[in-house]
Design a protein around this nucleic acid. Structure first.
Lengths: 218, 218
DNA sequence: AATATAATTTAGGTTACCCAAATTATATTA
DNA sequence: TAATATAATTTGGGTAACCTAAATTATATT
C-alpha cells in the first residue's frame, strides 16, 4: 500500500501528539501542527482510517494502528538519519537541518535508508539528541531529565533539546551550549526559576526557566 | 518563482529532447518521455510558457528559455550529483541509482546542493559518464565517440554510456565492462556490425552493434 | 488541389489535496 | 435541565495534475 507524502505528514503529526501520552489526538491539534484547516483533517483522518493506519472516533480522536505506527517511525527514522548526515557530512548547523530533512524524509527507497544508516554508523541519536528508531522501530531511551530539575552543584551532560526551532537552537549556540557539553548547575533563582550554569572554560551564563525546561541533561 | 516537481520533470524532458539538436520538441515526444497523455502536455506547456520557462508554438513545439534552461540544468545537476553520491558512498550499482535520483533531484535547498557537490569533490561526471553541470550550468564536454566508430586495433577508454536503463547497464556488468575500463577493438563483423573487444585480462567479448552504439570511448 | 495521416487542442471528468462558512454534536456550567 | 461554549463535521468550492474521446489543424502524399 502506497502512502502519500501528505499522509506521511499526518501520521507524523498523530505520532508526535500521542506517543508520550499514549493517548489520542483531536482534529484541532493536528490541524494546528500541520497548519491546515480542520475540515482537511476530518477528510484525511477518514482516509487514513480506511487504510487502517489510524483508529479514529469522533469523540476520542485519532491514534495510530500498529501499521500506522510502523509507517510513522520509518519516516521519523529517515528524518533523523538525514539530519545526522547533513550535520556530520555537509556542514549544516543543527538549526538548519529541519526544513531539508522534512523533504528528504519522504524519499522512498529501502536500500537508500539502509545504506544511509550504515554509512552513518547506525547512530542512535540525531543532532538534537532525539533518538533514531532502528529498522524495527525501536528507539533507545535515555534516562535524562530537564535541566531545571538538576540539583545545584551537579555536573551534567547536555543530551537533548526539546525544541528544534531554529530560533531556540541559535540562542543556545549564542550562549555557547552544544549537545554533549558538560555543564555545572550553579544556582537556580527563586524569583524566576532561571538557571545559572558554568560552561567549559568557566564561563557562566543565565538560562531562563523556559530555556532550562527545553534542555535535557543526564 | 516556484517550480513544482511536475514542472521540473517537464523542463527536463524538453531539455533532453532539444539540447543536442538545438531544436524544438512536439507534444508527442514529451508525452512519450513522461508517459503522460499528449493532452496533458498541452496544458503544462501552456503553463510553462506563462511562467516564461519555455517558448512554445503549436506548430514548432517547445524550447527552453534562458530561465527554463537554467532551471533544467539545476535539476540535472542535482540528479547527477545524487547518483554520484549513491554509487560512491552508499554502495549503489550504476543500474540502481536512477529511480532514487529521480526523487532526490527535486529536493530544494541551495545549501544542500552546494555542500553535496563539495562533499563529492565537485565531480565533472556521474557514474554513467554523463557530465555534471556546474553551478553556472556549464558542462565539461568530452571529445569522445561511439565504440562502433573506433578503429580496429585501437585501445580506447570507456567514458560514457548512452543508455542508463538498468537492463543495459546490467548487461555491461555481465560482459565485464565498466566506466573507465580500457578496451581494445579487435574486430568489427561485416555482416552485423557487432564488435569484438578485448577487456583487461585478455578476455574477449562480442558486443552487438546496438550495444556498441551506446558505449562512448576516447 | 484533394485527401489521408499525424499532431494538437478542446471539452468534460477524476483524484488528491486544500479552504471558509454553516451546521451539528458534545461538554460545561448556570 | 436548559443554555452556552467548544469541537467536529458537512457543504460547497478551488487548484493542480492527470485522463479519454472527439474535434480541429498541420503536414505529407497523391
Amino acid at each position: 500500500m502506497m502512502i502519500s507524502i501528505t499522509e506521511e505528514n499526518y501520521l507524523k503529526a498523530v505520532f508526535s501528539a500521542t506517543h508520550l501520552s499514549e493517548g489520542r489526538v483531536g482534529n484541532q491539534i493536528i490541524a494546528e501542527k500541520l497548519t491546515v484547516n480542520p475540515a482537511s483533517v476530518t477528510e484525511m483522518l477518514r482516509k487514513l482510517q480506511d487504510k487502517k493506519l489510524i483508529e479514529y472516533t469522533r469523540t476520542d480522536g485519532a491514534k495510530l494502528t500498529k501499521e500506522g505506527l510502523k509507517a510513522a517511525l520509518k519516516v521519523i527514522r529517515k528524518h533523523r538519519l538525514w539530519e545526522t548526515f547533513l550535520v556530520i557530512h555537509l556542514n549544516f548547523k543543527w538549526d538548519e537541518v529541519h526544513e531539508v530533512a522534512e523533504q528528504l524524509e519522504h524519499i522512498q527507497s529501502d536500500k537508500l535508508l539502509d545504506e544511509l544508516a550504515a554509512f552513518l554508523g547506525n547512530p542512535g541519536f540525531d543532532p538534537h539528541g532525539d533518538p533514531i528508531p532502528d529498522k524495527n522501530g525501536k528507539m533507545q531511551n535515555m534516562k535524562c531529565k530537564i535541566l531545571s530539575d538538576a540539583a545545584i552543584g551537579q555536573k551534567v551532560k547536555v543530551v537533548k533539546v526539546n525544541d528544534n526551532a531554529a530560533s531556540f537552537l541559535k540562542y543556545l549556540d549564542k550562549q555557547g551550549i552544544a549537545l554533549a557539553d558538560k555543564i555545572i548547575v550553579k544556582e537556580i533563582q527563586d524569583f524566576d526559576q532561571s538557571v545559572l550554569v558554568e560552561l567549559k572554560g568557566k564561563k557562566e551564563v543565565y538560562l531562563s526557566a523556559a530555556a532550562a525546561k527545553k534542555i535535557m541533561v543526564e
